[in-house]
Simulated scan of single mutants.
Amino acid sequence: MGSQRSVVITGASRGLGFASACHLYRNGWHVLAAMRSVDTGMKALRDATGAADDDPRLTGVTLDLTDTGSIETAAQTITAAVGAPHALVHNAGISAAGMVEETPTSLWERMFATTVFGPVALTKALLPEMRRTGRGRIVLVSSQGGVRGMPATAPYSAAKGALERWGEAMAAEVAPFGIGVTILVTGTYDTEIITDAGTTDCRDLAGVYAPHHATMDKRGRAAMRMAARSPEKFAAGLSKALESTKPFVKVPVGPDARMLMIANRLLPAAGLHQMTRLMMGIPRFGALGGQSNG
């Protein structure tokens, strides 16, 4: 199957995955773009890159991370196309807003299926061939929520935290076979996932958490406008990360992610909690005590 470097990118039809697929294709990689809607997603990728319909370096892979059968078929498609991929980038994800009381259990289940359970299943299906080949890098795209649990995004933060712990554990297991693991902690990027259109909104803006939502929404939108960077900058960071030869590495991609990782190392947990509360304008401890649900 030749010496062409190959990379599997999940969630390649939009956002960071789309930008990364375009960037790596332009840099000579064979990109296996995994997504739910291959027809529309591949058309967009070909339009953006100028790739022909039969270009062997741009392969569409149908993948629904919440469907076991889809994962198995996707793994077979990948193995048939390239054998063991040089890199497997777990980028696909969903976003949700709402307090723990406001978010339904079904949302938690879908969040973990997309962010943890599906990626684990796909990795397990591809690892045997990667072990036999004796090389490869598995990249887990985390976020600031994986470093520190953020209010109003508990399911997202919990899933990203689980993703990171999985990566840390797996790294020691697969390193003897020549397979490295990278965790990328992303900052804020200008993609659909940070907008209302890209987020499952479970917030009750008239409920008991209204004082939280009113301030957090205003401050959050302002912070995103100031901090959001182009997805192409993330793609460049991913491209650099794929060159690593270390068995395990965890690196930030973006200045805000870098600052949070530094703060997380330097500040005690209680101090970081207070800093987060003040930045987001959340009422002080006990301020809303005794309020009813009605």
Rank of each mutant, 00 (worst) to 15 (best):
Q4A: 14
Q4V: 15
T10Y: 09
T10Q: 09
S13I: 07
S13W: 01
R14F: 00
G15F: 02
L16R: 05
G17H: 08
F18M: 04
S20I: 04
H23N: 10
N27F: 04
N27H: 15
L32S: 09
L32N: 08
S37F: 00
L45I: 05
D47W: 01
A48K: 09
G50A: 04
D54K: 08
D54N: 15
T59C: 10
L63H: 11
D64S: 12
D64M: 11
L65A: 06
L65R: 06
T68D: 15
T73Q: 15
A74Y: 12
A80H: 14
A80S: 15
A81V: 07
P85Y: 08
A87Q: 03
V89T: 02
N91I: 00
N91F: 02
V100T: 15
V100A: 14
P104L: 13
L107K: 13
E109M: 08
M111G: 05
A113E: 13
A113D: 15
T115C: 11
T115D: 09
V116P: 12
G118M: 05
L122A: 08
L127N: 04
P128H: 14
E129M: 09
E129Y: 06
R132M: 06
R135G: 10
R137V: 13
V141N: 13
R148Y: 15
G161V: 02
A162Y: 08
L163V: 11
E164I: 10
W166M: 13
E168H: 05
P176Y: 00
F177H: 14
T186P: 01
G187A: 03
D190H: 06
T195N: 01
D201S: 07
C202M: 11
C202F: 15
D204S: 12
G207V: 04
V208H: 07
A210W: 01
H213D: 01
A214G: 00
A214I: 12
K218E: 14
R219H: 03
R219F: 00
G220I: 11
A222Q: 14
P231A: 09
E232M: 08
K233W: 03
F234K: 01
A235T: 06
S239C: 08
K240R: 13
P247R: 03
V249H: 02
V251Q: 10
A257M: 02
A257T: 08
A257I: 06
R258M: 02
L260K: 06
A263N: 10
R265A: 12
A269F: 05
A269H: 11
G271S: 09
T276R: 12
T276W: 08
M279H: 02
G281F: 12
G286Y: 06
G290R: 12
Q291C: 05
S292P: 06
N293T: 12
